[in-house]
């Protein structure tokens, strides 16, 4: 990160050396620490402590509301967790969701970005419309699509209209095979605009003369894409891959509003399970164990992605 070095140089030039008395310097330390302290204290209380607690409580029998202090129970929570079929279902569903959503969303976002990047009229309008679902709350989106997916909802009406009544669709969210794909489709619809913007920002950093050179060489549109555009998007690609993956692994709101983990546990996810354990069943210790597994999952997956997409110099 080059950002940390540049400003230091700037700050060193800030005051001519001869003015810098020891007194002024200790004052600067005092005021600097004072100005940073509200944020630092809040981050310590609401970030550092709970992260540390996730590790600590996972080995206790802590309950959300209990007069007794938590007891150390060793690896009991993890033993219970690994023997819990609900956990394995949650893990499987989370993986299924991520494996489908990550490539589909990244790819579709790139297609949209290429379409929106074309220098023709109306680009601003298109970008705004594609982006509207991103600023809309996931709760509202989930509600809306819950209606769309109803047995007598919008989707099935469209299906029976275009097939002239030969097909009537299904009860999308209550059918074990279609529930998760339905949630995937909606999730991509909601978030793809965000990653389109990120791809667009990446596309706009590609120097124009690279394209001019390609067109002078008579390169086709596809050749230009594979030889100029794609290689120039390396940093953007890594970022998009990692943010979509972390978002996908954190799947919760859609499940909470649309299916509550059903039908037949086909849509439970790791975060949904953590909330159920820690909040509904009030067993904070067990929820912390689930959270810890989630933490390791996120770190491992993004670490592996960073490694695979690293710069090969």
């Amino acid at each position: 990160m080059s950002a940390t070095t540049a400003p230091r140089r700037v700050a060193e030039q800030a005051i001519p050396r001869q003015v810098r008395t020891a007194n002024a310097r200790s004052r600067e330390t005092l005021i600097g620490a004072a100005m940073a302290s509200p944020a630092v204290i809040l981050l310590a209380v609401f970030f550092l402590v709970p992260v540390a607690l996730a590790f600590g409580l996972a080995f206790t029998n802590a309950r959300l509301i209990s007069p007794r202090p938590p007891h150390f129970v060793g690896a009991d929570n993890f033993i219970r967790l690994f023997g819990d079929s609900f956990f394995w279902a949650s893990l499987r569903n989370t993986a299924y969701f991520a494996v489908v959503v990550v490539p589909v969303q990244a790819g579709l976002a790139l297609v949209l970005a290429l379409l929106a990047n074309a220098k023709v009229r109306g680009t601003n309008f298109f970008r705004t419309v594609y982006f509207a679902p991103v600023v809309t709350s996931m709760v509202v989106i989930s509600l809306l699509w819950r209606f769309i997916y109803q047995p007598d909802g919008l989707l099935n009406q469209i299906i029976s209209a275009v097939t002239f009544g030969h097909s009537h669709g299904t009860d999308w969210l209550n059918n074990p095979t279609t529930a998760m794909p339905a949630i995937m489709f909606m999730s991509v619809w909601q978030a793809v605009g965000f990653h389109m913007i990120i791809w667009l920002a990446g596309l706009q950093t590609i120097p124009r003369d690279l394209y001019e050179a390609a067109s002078l060489d008579g390169a086709s549109a596809w050749k230009t894409f594979t030889h100029v555009t794609w290689p120039s998007l390396r940093a953007t690609r890594t970022f998009i891959l990692i943010t979509i993956t972390i978002g996908a692994l954190s799947l919760f709101t859609q499940i909470s509003v649309m299916t509550q983990g059903g039908p037949l546990d086909r849509t439970t996810t790791v975060v949904f399970m953590a909330v159920r354990a820690g909040y509904e069943q009030q067993s904070t210790g067990y929820a912390a164990a689930v959270s810890l597994v989630f933490f390791v999952l996120v770190l491992t997956v993004s670490g592996v992605q960073r490694f695979l997409t690293r710069e090969k110099a």
Binding site: L53, A274, G278
Partner: peptide, 20 residues
């Protein structure tokens, strides 16, 4: 330290945070 916190999603510590 502040920049390092960016990679941790809220969901990882939400439940311990409720207890806290």
């Amino acid at each position: 330290a502040i920049i390092a916190t960016l990679i941790v999603p809220f969901e990882t510590f939400a439940l311990p945070l409720v207890w806290w």
